[in-house]
C-alpha cells in the first residue's frame, strides 16, 4: 500500500484505547490498518506491551474456545451435484432414461435371439426405435411424475427453452444407444429410424402446446403401436412406414412439427 505508515505513538494510543483520540484520526487509522499488514503486526506487538489487560482477556477467550475449535471437524465434503446436470436433466428423468436404455438392450437381445419367423421381417428394434425417445420426453415435463412441476412452472425459465433443453438431454442419451444397436444388428440404417424418431419428437412437442407434452407423447406412442406396428407384426411384414421411399413423408412431418413449435413458442410458458 502507501509508503506512509502510522506512527508508533498513534498505534500505542489506539492499543490503549485512549479516549482523547479524535474520531477522524481513529477512522483514518482503522482504514489504514485494514489494508496494511506491517502496521497490524506493530499493533499486535503494541497490545502485548501497552495493554496487558486486553492481551490477557484475548488469551482467556482463546483458551476457552480452543477445545470447541478442536472438536469442530470440517464436515466431509459430500459429492456435489454439478450444476450443469440439473440444468439439463431433472432427477425424475434419470429412471426413465435408464428404462429407455434397458428397452433398447432388450430389443437388441430379442433381435439377436429370435428366429425370423417369430416377428417376420419387422425386427423389434426397428419397431420401437421411432417412438423410444418419446418416453423420455414425456417424463421430462410431466405434472404427475415431476414433484417440482408446480414450482418449475412458475419460474422464468419455464417454457420452450427449458423443454428443449430437457428434450435435447433425452435425445443425447437415447440416439447414441439406438445408433449402436442399429449398427450391431445391421437390420436398419440410421436414416430409416432417425428421421421418424425426430419427427415423432417434434410432433409431440407441437401437440404438447395444446394438450400437454406428456399426453401428446403417450397418444403418439399408442397411435404408432395401433396403426403401424401391430398390423405389421400381425401380418409378419416389414414396416411399410419405415421403407426408404416413405422418408419424405417423415421429413415433412418433422418440418411441420418444428414449424408448429416455433409458431406456438409462447404457449409453452403456461402448461
Amino acid at each position: 500500500m502507501s509508503a506512509e505508515h502510522a506512527s508508533m505513538r498513534l498505534i500505542d494510543d489506539y492499543a490503549r484505547g485512549d479516549t482523547e483520540m479524535a474520531a477522524d484520526t481513529v477512522w483514518a487509522l482503522e482504514a489504514h490498518l485494514e489494508t496494511c499488514a506491517p502496521c497490524r503486526s506493530r499493533l499486535a506487538a503494541s497490545v502485548a506491551t501497552e495493554a496487558p489487560g486486553i492481551a490477557a482477556l484475548v488469551d482467556t477467550v482463546r483458551a476457552g474456545l480452543e477445545p470447541q475449535l478442536d472438536a469442530a471437524v470440517r464436515r466431509p465434503s459430500r459429492r456435489h451435484r454439478p450444476r450443469w446436470v440439473s440444468a439439463w436433466l431433472t432427477p425424475v428423468m434419470a429412471p426413465w432414461l435408464a428404462m429407455t436404455v434397458a428397452v433398447t438392450l432388450m430389443a437388441l437381445l430379442l433381435d439377436a435371439l429370435s428366429s425370423p419367423t417369430l416377428f417376420g421381417d419387422a425386427s423389434p428394434m426397428v419397431t420401437i426405435a421411432p417412438v423410444l425417445p418419446l418416453c423420455g420426453v414425456a417424463a421430462s415435463w410431466s405434472r404427475g411424475l415431476d414433484p417440482a412441476h408446480e414450482l418449475t412452472a412458475s419460474t422464468a425459465r419455464a417454457g420452450l427453452p427449458l423443454l428443449l433443453r430437457r428434450t435435447t438431454a433425452v435425445l443425447v442419451v437415447v440416439l447414441p444407444g439406438l445408433l449402436l444397436a442399429g449398427w450391431l444388428t445391421g437390420t436398419m440404417t440410421a436414416a430409416q429410424w432417425l428421421l421418424p424418431s425426430l419427427a415423432f419428437t417434434s410432433t409431440a412437442l407441437a401437440l404438447g402446446s395444446v394438450v400437454g407434452v406428456t399426453r401428446a407423447a403417450v397418444a403418439l406412442v399408442a397411435a404408432w403401436g395401433v396403426v403401424v406396428a401391430a398390423p405389421a407384426w400381425d401380418a409378419g411384414l416389414a414396416l411399410l412406414a419405415l421403407e426408404p421411399d416413405q422418408l419424405p413423408v417423415w421429413g415433412l412431418l418433422l418440418a411441420l412439427g418444428i414449424g408448429a413449435v416455433i409458431a406456438r413458442r409462447n404457449a409453452y410458458s403456461v402448461l
Binding site: R78, H80, R81, S86, T90, P91, V92, D146, P147, A148, H149, E150, L151, S154, T155, A156, R157, A158, G159, R264, N266, A267, S269, V270
Partner: peptide
C-alpha cells in the same frame, strides 16, 4: 393471453401449498 412472462416471472416468488421437491437434493442445491 399467450404473452411472454419471462421478465415478469423473474420478479415473482411463489410457494405452492403442496410443494414438491427432489428428495435427494440438499437444501442448498
Amino acid at each position: 393471453g399467450l404473452g411472454d412472462h419471462r421478465a415478469l416471472r423473474r420478479r415473482i416468488g411463489y410457494l405452492p401449498q403442496e410443494f414438491g421437491y427432489y428428495k435427494r437434493f440438499t437444501v442448498r442445491e
